[in-house]
């Protein structure tokens, strides 16, 4: 287990939900506080996916512009505030990454998939997955994943790799990687739902 894996800022679900509700009413102070509280976690997520500080800053900016405009669509009954915020940032980053790709996937793409270098410092994707497992008592669920699906899901989630990039990075056929992702997600869902962790 890698050191330096710290918990996400969790000042309490209620606090963030309260801030979001005030942002929805146009409260600029609440918006500043929301930014101060959530931006280090969201920026870290963005950097890992786009792998470029300046670009991650741009993604974070766009995400917060969107948060200001769409805070009124946040539904506290559906998701925790940090989940909602994280989804906005991840979707921005993924849209940006995918926009640069050829819109059709084929085996031929494996050869010219975007070169991927693991981040030189900080915990690896699998470290982070295991850390999350520790934190959330998900250990059983993550442990239950076979090594292939586990690594594929960790790389896709933390580094934003597409199927073809996963195949290139893991040196496996595209079909194998796709089925790992599918099987891994299905297993994760069964386990999470059974454990009542993220129903």
């Amino acid at each position: 287990m890698s050191a330096g894996v710290n918990p996400a800022p969790d000042p309490g679900v209620d606090r963030l939900a309260d801030l979001l509700a005030r942002v929805a009413l146009g409260d600029q102070r609440a918006f500043a506080e929301l930014y101060r509280t959530a931006s280090p976690h969201l920026y870290a997520i963005a950097i890992r996916i786009v792998r470029n500080g300046a670009l991650a800053e741009e993604m974070l900016q766009e995400a917060f512009v969107s948060i200001w405009h769409h805070a009124n669509t946040y539904d506290a009954a559906r998701s925790r505030p940090i989940t909602w915020l994280t989804s906005i940032v991840r979707n921005r980053c993924l849209d940006w990454l995918r926009r640069r790709e050829v819109p059709t996937e084929s085996l031929a793409r494996n050869d010219d998939a975007m070169p991927w270098e693991p981040p030189s410092d900080g915990p690896s994707p699998v470290d982070l997955l295991l850390a999350a497992a520790d934190a959330q008592a998900l250990r059983g669920c993550v442990d239950a994943l076979e090594p292939g699906p586990r690594q594929a899901i960790a790389l896709a989630f933390f580094e934003g790799l597409s199927h073809s990039e996963l195949a290139a990075h893991m040196r496996e056929p595209l079909g194998t990687v796709k089925s790992w992702v599918r099987r891994g997600l299905a297993a994760l869902r069964r386990c999470l739902d059974a454990a009542g962790i993220a129903p």
Binding site: N6, P40, I82
Partner: peptide, 17 residues
């Protein structure tokens, strides 16, 4: 998104400029 977000809760935070 809720299920998947659970995975990302332990990413070391980085304060933006």
């Amino acid at each position: 998104e809720r299920r998947i977000a659970v995975l990302g809760e332990r990413v070391p935070p980085v304060t933006p400029a």
